[in-house]
């Protein structure tokens, strides 16, 4: 763009930039307008919502701690679901990661199989998996564990697969040159390189799974969600408040533990 000396009108953005900004703003406004006008909302309810929410909160204080034993037990169950499911998912994810990494997969068919497993596991939410497994195994912890395993598999497999794709190829070449078998090359040249990622993503996923385990009970798959749902159905709001506080404690403690472990291990 040629600028003449006399052309001194200053503008912050070039024409194209201004146009892009304007168009983006317009698009956002249009999206908001469309959503607001066409959404199926009963507006009087919306205006009433703050009062209703305030009312709900009022009914929650003071928290009722009489069910604290049951709540503690449910917390432990939640922790168990998250831990057991993460533990198994981590090991199941390793072969999937191996076949879905471009540089280790045996052939194209296995590559696509691996990718299919990752995508289907990752795209279906834990709660939808839980719905399915509650229908299969019946309500309970088992359905929750399996649901979390299925969801974690894709997450862990994807991140581990990416770690495998990013390894340094040179030690692999060197070990192949010594006449080591494929299994030994994996053990000595690939495993040590992905161990840090392995621990990091396992801890990260455990933390996420702890949060997800708190809601499994809402579809009947065990953990603290079961008694939360029960208390809500009984309209026992003061117990609900205690359960919510317990969940905050669990989640924050889990996050702290995860952060500590990450520092220790890596």
């Amino acid at each position: 763009m040629k600028q003449s000396v006399a052309d001194r009108a200053w503008s912050r953005h070039t024409g194209r930039q201004r146009w892009v900004r304007f168009a983006s703003l317009l698009a956002v406004a249009a999206a908001a307008g469309w959503s607001l006008t066409s959404i199926d909302i009963i507006w009087p309810w919306v205006w009433d919502a703050p009062a209703q929410i305030g009312d709900l909160f009022k009914r929650m204080v003071p928290p009722d701690v009489s069910a604290i034993r049951a709540i503690t037990w449910a917390l432990i169950e939640t922790l168990n679901i998250a831990t057991i499911a993460t533990f198994f998912a981590v090991f199941l994810s390793l072969p999937v990661a191996y076949i879905s990494a471009q540089n280790t997969t045996p052939n194209r068919a296995t590559l696509w199989l691996g990718r299919f497993i990752l995508v289907s596991s990752r795209s279906v939410n834990t709660l939808i998996w839980a719905l399915l497994f509650v229908a299969i195994f019946g309500p309970g912890v088992l359905a929750g564990i399996v649901a979390i395993m299925f969801r974690s598999l894709g997450f862990l497999g994807k991140l581990m697969g990416e770690a495998i794709e990013e390894i340094d190829r040179r030690p692999v070449e060197a070990l192949e040159a010594t006449g080591a078998s494929r299994a030994k090359v994996i053990l000595y040249a690939i495993v040590p390189q992905v161990v840090p990622t392995f621990f990091a993503v396992s801890i990260l996923r455990w933390d996420i799974n702890l949060r997800e385990s708190t809601v499994l009970g809402l579809v009947g798959a065990g953990g603290i969600g079961v008694i939360l749902q029960g208390a809500i159905d009984m309209l026992d709001w003061r117990t609900v408040a205690t359960i919510l506080l317990a969940i905050i404690v669990l989640v924050i403690a889990g996050e702290a533990l995860a952060a500590w472990l990450r520092k220790k291990v890596i």
């Binding site: 309810w45 949060r211 809402l218 989640v251 924050i252």
Partner: peptide, 17 residues
């Protein structure tokens, strides 16, 4: 951050329908 959206949702469903 601590509450899974599903928990928040269930409370709001109770409050505002």
């Amino acid at each position: 951050r601590s509450f899974h959206p599903v928990i928040v949702a269930i409370l709001f469903v109770k409050a505002v329908g």
